[in-house]
Design a protein around this nucleic acid. Structure first.
Lengths: 246, 246
DNA sequence: CGGTGTGTTGAAAGGTGTCAATGCTAGTGG
DNA sequence: CCACTAGCATTGACACCTTTCAACACACCG
């Protein structure tokens, strides 16, 4: 099976063929969104939800004076606007970093799942909670780590998340973020990001050119970042019996 | 009605008497947790969930070297560990800032609600998503605002959240955070927090002593902070008909 | 009464931002 | 094929926000 959404959820729990089928049906109609497109703007009414099939997207907020903070970056297999199920308007904006292939869903599809498949419903809830866990770690990154640690930590998060959906190869992965986007993610300036990445390179921790990122020394980078992947590794749903029989 | 949970949800949607009753029943057995108690430690298995009736609690993560980052602060009417419904272990630690009065729930209670009351289930989902929105704003605060703006912004968030549950009076509220906790919330040092608060006082924006906080100049403080309360103001659930009939 | 937690202040160091300029590459149009 | 532009990475000098270290004041409490 080579579907990122299913890979992701299979790391969480064993899916039945029927569940896999339901998830695949959600992804039957694909669309392309060009890089740079604003998928949703903060404050607008939600219309659709999406599953990302290919490409990267940035969730961000703008301040009045133009400062920009990226909250999270969605990768293949991630839901976008899942909260449209319970929110009328978007809390933040989302932008296509690269060209995207997405499956567009109406929020009603999610309500269907909630009525008909308690276990998939639990998985969707988990997905939403998991997004929250990534936000939490982002707060620590931005609040209590310096630039060197913070970049290291973010790269390790990408490595792990991409690994789960089979998009890494020997600690190497395609990395489409510009240094400006990295800066907006980590609350830094592009100048400082540049210098810090340069230092990570000089210290032989990473290799990075042409949008290709390689972690050269995983152990040391983890140590530098104080990276504990546990927040990405919830490996089971509780109440399986209750949910399965419910 | 003087129940913080119900006040909070009533700001979202009109609750039926039966729904109010269900929510009150969740809060029928109260317990006291002393200030300083660690309610749950990151990595531990979840056992209970809580509704805070009185007091403040801090969600935080620790780094290996002792640095600490507070993710969010829970106030009366907030659920704690609601994610125990779909996660086996806690993602972060939670500490009682003040003495707390809480209602303890088993996660199974939440599953009951999901089986029997789709609309309350939607409200709980909203609650979880709303927590995410607060985390998102926290990222912006820490990432893209300086100390002066950031403290101003956090105070305005508290003002609004406390207002919703009826715990403010003429822009004055009880404020139990020490400057050290403020620092851990905003990713600063206590020394710098001290100087910055002092500046906010000198600028006649706030008054603060003996755990009593007063916003003196709401308009100017909002301007300084770039505070847009929309992320706290989701005022309706979509799909009401669908959810009500479901 | 001394101890502990919290708030306050000063001086100096350091991380990060600001401003400005340069190089590089890819794409575009003449 | 050659300007020309736009976007991105890179670098230097300097300013500023924030931290660090240290000390002191004050209130509370056993």
């Amino acid at each position: 099976m080579n579907n990122p959404l299913i890979s992701k959820y299979s790391a969480l729990t064993k899916l039945t063929p029927k569940e896999k089928n339901t998830l695949l049906q959600l992804q039957s109609k694909r669309e392309i969104i060009l890089a740079g497109t604003e998928i949703i703007r903060a404050g607008q009414n939600h219309k659709s939800m999406y599953i990302i099939e290919e490409g990267w997207a940035a969730h961000y907020k703008l301040l009045a004076d133009g400062r920009q903070q990226i909250l999270n970056i969605s990768l293949p297999g991630d839901f976008i606007c899942l909260d449209a199920t319970v929110l009328k308007t978007a809390e933040h904006s989302i932008n296509a970093i690269t060209d995207l292939v997405v499956s567009r869903l109406s929020p009603e599809k999610i309500l269907d799942i909630f009525s008909h498949s308690p276990r998939l419903a639990a998985i969707l809830c988990w997905s939403s909670v998991h997004d929250g866990a990534i936000l939490a770690e982002q707060i620590v990154r931005v609040g209590r780590r310096n630039a060197y640690e913070s970049i290291a930590h973010l790269l390790l998060e990408f490595l792990r998340r991409l690994d789960i959906i089979g998009m890494t190869n020997n600690n190497t992965f395609h990395f489409p973020l510009t240094q400006e986007l990295l800066a907006d993610t980590l609350g830094l300036t592009t100048v400082h990001v540049n210098r810090t990445i340069r230092r990570l390179r000089k210290d032989n921790l990473i290799e990075y050119s042409d949008n290709k990122m390689t972690i050269l020394n995983l152990k040391k980078l983890r140590q530098v970042a104080g990276f504990d992947p546990i927040y990405l590794e919830q490996d089971a749903l509780p109440f399986r019996n209750r949910i399965e029989s419910g």
